[in-house]
Design a protein around this nucleic acid. Structure first.
Lengths: 65, 65
DNA sequence: TCTTTTTGTAAAGTTTTGTTTACATTATGA
DNA sequence: TCATAATGTAAACAAAACTTTACAAAAAGA
């Protein structure tokens, strides 16, 4: 699963810490997701969707054929 | 988090076991999600999305204000 | 009604997601 | 250059998602 969090953060001029705060998770969680260490839960994906006002599909892309 | 899995399954005339199979999870996982016991992972949500050819937002609805 | 299929549920265990604390590395800016 | 902010990472732990086995209840069909 790929994601555009880093770019969206840049567009919104936010740090990992600020996004973590807005999404109610730890900064390490944001970092791990951006770095592809793991995928967020569905509820967390919805939070990003709401924060960036974009559908989940615009933020996360499945990468299995 | 609410979901329309049961209805979508009905529309596609699938049993929980068939959906489980198509999504590569156990039947109990499908049942638990339908019953609201827990939310699927984001990757699993994407599988449902692909199977039913509907955006994740059409299948799952966040219910926090 | 009797049989079979489907759904609900539970307990014990594994894997994945997320936290906390802590520190090292890399930008940024004065 | 020096300080500070931002990012990367790691280990130990907690919580949530998911599996397996197993059985009971409900629905559907002959």
């Amino acid at each position: 699963m790929k994601n555009r969090l880093k770019v969206l953060r840049a567009e919104h001029d936010m740090t990992q810490a600020q996004l973590a705060d807005a999404a109610n998770v730890s900064r390490q969680t944001i970092n791990a997701i951006e770095k592809g260490k793991f995928d967020p839960s569905l509820p967390l994906a919805f939070k990003f969707s709401k924060l960036f006002k974009k559908p989940i599909e615009d933020i996360f892309q499945d990468e299995e054929e």
